[in-house]
Design a protein around this nucleic acid. Sequence first.
DNA 1: ATCGGAACACTACGGCTGTAGTGGGCGGTC
DNA 2: GACCGCCCACTACAGCCGTAGTGTTCCGAT
Lengths: 199, 199
Amino acid sequence: MAARTTGTSRADLVADTALALLAERGLRGLTHRAVDEAAGLPQGSTSNVARTRQALLELAVRRLADREARVLSPEEMPDPRDGLEGLADALALATHRALTRNRDLTRARYELALEATRRPELRAYYDTAGARFRDRLTALVTALGSTDPARHVLSLVAWAEGLMFACVAGSFHAEVPSPEQVRASLRELLEAMTGRTGR
Amino acid sequence: MAARTTGTSRADLVADTALALLAERGLRGLTHRAVDEAAGLPQGSTSNVARTRQALLELAVRRLADREARVLSPEEMPDPRDGLEGLADALALATHRALTRNRDLTRARYELALEATRRPELRAYYDTAGARFRDRLTALVTALGSTDPARHVLSLVAWAEGLMFACVAGSFHAEVPSPEQVRASLRELLEAMTGRTGR
DNA sequence: ATCGGAACACTACGGCTGTAGTGGGCGGTC
DNA sequence: GACCGCCCACTACAGCCGTAGTGTTCCGAT
């Protein structure tokens, strides 16, 4: 649990606690009162920050988008001149972080993604953040000589997303794969996309 | 909604309705009374078939495993002699079906996968079904000359799973990709795994 | 110093959910 | 034909959830 203790506004504290709760107990465990309790706030606090459930979900999604934006920020993106290896390294690192340090955030994201299916207002945040990331990725694979950038970006994102989902929601194994394995698979993928043959 | 109308036992009707509800309204929308109503059964029926919520979830997961087992049955698997193209075709077809005809089933599976994180009893069904499918896939990629079958199977499954999740829970686009695109990407993946270079 | 407003703590309530209990009808058995 | 057991419809109830309302406290502006 353990959301921020200081320095952040009350709304951020509520949002972070909501995300932690989402990761731990799912959508069904996210209630106004549960957030109050988990955050150590007096009863009614969450209700005041976000009166309706819809508002609470939007608060959580907005906060999630904020925190993930920092992780996938341009500074974290590799230099195009680092080529295939640079991109593979950067993506492997981001994936690995999502499964370790930011595991709760990742899990909360999947919970909310499913919910966003039924709440169009939530979709907006996902769509814009996702599109921005994909645009940057498109530029990178194009620079690498991709023969079909749009399809290749979708493929890359799907691969990473599927790996993360499986690790976090346990389709195959609870252990996170070693960064080397992730890098190896990513290199393979990228090589296939650029027509290069593996070593 | 429209679950079965005849021929199936009451328990199956309840389970199918639960799965449909899960796809449409998520875990929060799955309640005993909601199933009664959606299935057109008198109040209390679902409660009798599965008294506790845990029992209802297990019923749904068991039914899901049954229905998916038919889809991913050995008969649907390609003949190893059909080679790379055969495997790519089969996987593309299965993926495409999961996104069209069996879309609700796929969505329900993701809902339950997230819930299974917190309910170990549900995990068992996923684990065994998944392991069986992966074993068959391992044999196929090995026959194709994969240089690292275990990792390659994980990679293939992650790719397909990620694509399906994105299409169903809308990370990038609600439209399902054309089967040709799916096949193209799969061929690329498989070629990379077997060291073959794409034409 | 006073006023106004915002953030906050607390209470209330209608509705829904999970689960237990109870009686009735129906089919198979001696 | 009488009996027994199972499945089923229905009711009951306690707990929790979302949301509205109300009074209070605190702070900045005047």
